[in-house]
Structure formats: C-alpha cells, structure tokens
Design a protein around this nucleic acid. Structure first.
Lengths: 187, 187
DNA sequence: TGTAGCATGTAAGCCGTTACATGATTGA
DNA sequence: TCAATCATGTAACGGCTTACATGCTACA
C-alpha cells in the first residue's frame, strides 16, 4: 500500500463521491474547484486550482479515480469519477485515521490580542469590519444551504451547512458583545 | 526595507511585546513557545519549537529584537526583547496589512460531510468524541483566562480568551443539536 | 475582434512540520 | 545516576500558494 494521502486529498475524494450521486458523468478539475468553493471552503480550505489538478492526478495514479478523456482540438478535458478502490480508501481512512482537533486561524482575534498597540478606536473598527465580513459569508453559506434542499442523499452536507450557519450566528453575537465591551470601557 | 514577515512572525512579535510588560528581562525561545501554547494556540497556531527559533533569528536579523546572550558552559542561552524598531514594524503591519477572513480547518465537520459513507452510528460517535475534546480545550482556556486576571495591561488578551470561551460554548450547543438531530432521524 | 469564462497544467518558493542531534540543570 | 525539564538548533521534506504559460468557446 502506498503512503497515505493528505486530508485535503480525502476531502476532494469525498466531494467527488457526493458529486456522483447527482451527476454520474464525473467532474472536471475546474468543476471540482467550484464545488470546493461552495462547500469545503467553509470548514476546511479552498485549494488552489493547481492543487486540485495535482491532487486529481495523484488520486488517479493511485487508482482511486476513473477518468474519461474528451479530446477537443489539441487539448484534453478529463472527467473524473470515484471508483470502488476510491470508496474503499475513503472508508478506511474515515474509520482509521485519528480525528484532529480543529485549527482556527483567526487574524481578527490575533490582532485584537495586540489591542493595546492598536488603540481602542482601531480595535473597534477592526471588529466592525469583521462583523460585516461575517454577514457576507453567512449570506453565501445560506445560499448554499438553500440550494442543497432536503433530499436524503444530501442530509449530511446539509447538516454541515447548518453547523456553519449557527457558527456564524454565534460569532456575530460574540463580536457584538465585544464591541459593546469596548465602548463601555471608553466612558 | 526588506520583504514582509509572515503573520506568524508578527504574532510572535506581539507575544514578545505583551511579555515585556510583566517581564522586562526578555524571553527565551523556549519560554516564547510555552507562551504561544497558552495563548496563540487557541486562535492562530502553535508553531513548532524549530519555527520559534528560526522566527526569532529572523526577527533579530531584521533588527526588531534585542538579544542578551548568557554563556553557560559551552552553550548559549538567548533572551530576546522587542525594541523600538520591532514596535514600529508591528504597528505599521497592524495598520496597513489587509485583515484576512478566518480559516477554519475542521476535521470533524469535514468527516461529517461524508456521513453517508460513515454511517449514523459512527457519525454519532465522532460528534460525541468531539464534544469531549471541546470540553477539555475549554477547561484549558478557562485556566488561561483565570490566570490573566483583570489588569488593564492584559485587557485585550483577556477579551480574546473570553471570545474563545464563548466560541467553545456555542460549538458545544451546536454539536448537541446535531447529535439530537441524528438520533431523531434514527426513529 | 476581443474579453470573459471554461479548462489544464508547470515551476518556484514559502511556511511549517517531523526527525534528528546536542548540551545544561535539577531533583528523585 | 538517571530522568525530566530547560534549551538550542539543523536538515529534509510536504503541502500549498503564486506566478506563469497555454488553449478553447461563446458572445457582445
């Protein structure tokens, strides 16, 4: 058995699996990237295009994907579908690999830590602007959640989307409280 | 002016700045790593020891740190303090660099997305175990928050710690709801 | 005719990790 | 005297990004 794949690789494999339920012709790298931007982005990462292509090539080399080649002019478009070997690999990773605790890279909290240097005014503006970004993100995710609907096949992705929405709501409440705390101290 | 530093570099610089208020002898790489594990870990990353040393060396090369060398036997222990140049660099980064939206790498959500493959039982166990991990982390962070106390100098770090606690509380509530949703469907 | 979107990749390089190597100090 | 903790670094490498290079298709 060749060396393990990275979690991102398995995440893309999982996306391909979900893709198959609605679209059994497979996905191109480009389409997979769009899909990652709609889903994975909210709780993992949005891999760069170049990484999507290299992970697809790697997964195909490992035999976890089946590819269709469409020749159009002097250029090839590849559509990938997850195969039995891919499903097996994904299942065994899910059951065997240790589940790490989430990692949050939070530039706003990191800067707020240095609030002393930043000053109360700028700290307040930082939080205000984060609050707006949060609202934008939440709207994006709500659109995704709505588009999923409620078919049983998409039950889990829908749960994850709702998790994200609840997270954004809670984050907004906390930020509101922090902003109020900042103003109170200014009296 | 040499090229920009990474956000992690600035985060360590910020930690050094806070360190100075209580301990003006400076910090060793080892002590800085301990400090990062107590604070930065919760909303950024806990850099590896080797990275702490290499970032300190880089910051010192840039002239942002002042170092004291204690020779003990054939080995040198360095204590670093942030200097004026470091404070200026930190301040200008804070005011000029764009603030990215947080990135969450959430292995539990990522796996839950593949719940179909995982099965309802295993999905439930995944969430239960995450709930426990969350409680452990929260306890660690509560200890940190308590140890900070309420001196004005640590006001912002205290705000960030409270942000983290509120986040863990909300996360626990969401996970509880998800677990209930999973069981309901099992009827 | 040109530009936006669809589509695919390579190359260079940064950030950060793990593995490895080494030495000093303290206390059981 | 042995282990734990304090303390410092180098080397190799993986994951991921940015920059670059290329070509097809539809439509304004």
């Amino acid at each position: 058995m060749p060396a393990e794949l990275s979690p991102t690789s398995y995440a893309l494999l999982g996306l391909l699996m979900l893709g198959d339920s609605t679209d059994n012709a497979g996905l191109t790298g480009y389409e997979l990237k769009l899909r990652a931007d709609r889903t994975l982005r909210f709780y993992w990462v949005s891999p760069a295009m170049s990484q999507v292509y290299s992970e697809l090539a790697r997964l195909a080399r490992r035999g976890h994907l089946t590819a269709d080649h469409d020749r159009a002019g002097r250029r090839t478009t590849r559509r990938y579908r997850i195969n039995e070997s891919g499903v097996r690999a994904l299942r065994s990773w899910l059951s065997a690999a240790p589940v790490d605790f989430p990692v949050l890279k939070h530039p706003v909290a990191m800067r707020l830590m240095m609030g002393q240097l930043l000053g109360e005014q700028a700290a307040g503006e930082l939080l205000d602007s984060y609050r707006q970004g949060l609202a934008d993100r939440r709207a994006d995710l709500q659109a995704v959640r709505d588009s999923l609907g409620d078919p049983p096949a998409l039950r889990y992705p829908a749960m994850v989307a709702e998790w994200g929405l609840a997270y954004y709501d809670s984050e907004r409440d906390i930020v509101d409280r922090l902003i109020r705390g900042l103003r109170n101290n200014a009296e």
